[in-house]
Amino acid sequence: MEPDLGSAPTTASALTSLDLGDDFGWALGVLLRAHRDRVQEAIGDFPHGPRGYETMAEVIRGTQPSQLALANHLGIDRTVMTYLVDDLEADGLVERRPNPADRRQRLVVATPRGQEVISGACSRVVAAQDLVLGALDPAEREALRRLLVKAAVGTGGDVDDPCEVADE
């Protein structure tokens, strides 16, 4: 059964008369592609690219109690997460340690080198994000960031800012 489109335009000429400036999906897509490209440039040859950066930033936050929890939080398949952490460990950015609360689990912990590398990467990512949002003044950028996080949390998503370090 097809959905009732009501008075939605069905011809090419009717579609071209739409104002894409009000198209939320289009705007998000443009921003996401620009963000992806700028962040990729900003982090350079970081192991596993943006996925590795996001993983490393989450490790620094220290909020996930195990490698599996880390994979679930980031939406990364657990087998892929194993290879990703292996590569971060081979680069001296993280190490696996037994979890004192549950010896069956392995904690992924940032090394001092990993902390240094992610600190520099976070600074570059924030600068890249500011470039993507260059059409907005600083107050508008902050408002947009707050509203995006609020909307994301409203979906029930697990949202954290990867550049904010958990209080120790």
Rank of each mutant, 00 (worst) to 15 (best):
T82P: 15
R146L: 01
A42Y: 02
R106N: 04
A90R: 06
R96G: 09
S17E: 15
A101N: 12
R33W: 02
Y83D: 15
A101C: 05
G92N: 05
E164H: 11
T111D: 03
L74N: 09
E58Q: 13
G134F: 07
H48A: 08
L107Q: 04
L84H: 04
A8N: 12
D23V: 10
R97K: 08
R51A: 14
V80C: 15
A121R: 07
T55H: 04
D161T: 00
A71S: 14
Q105D: 08
L74Q: 10
A139W: 04
E140N: 00
E89L: 04
A42T: 01
R124L: 11
A151R: 13
G52C: 04
V165I: 05
I118Q: 02
A71R: 12
V59D: 00
T82Q: 15
A152V: 06
V85G: 03
R145T: 05
H48L: 10
L144S: 00
V117G: 08
V109P: 09
A8V: 13
R145A: 07
G134R: 05
L31V: 13
L20P: 15
C163Y: 05
V149A: 07
R78N: 14
P100K: 00
A127R: 03
L32I: 07
L131Q: 03
M81F: 12
E140I: 00
G92R: 07
V94D: 04
R146C: 01
G134K: 08
S119C: 07
E89Q: 09
T79L: 15
H35W: 13
G29S: 10
A152T: 03
F46M: 12
G52E: 04
D160K: 13
W26H: 15
R106T: 03
V59E: 02
E116W: 09
D4I: 03
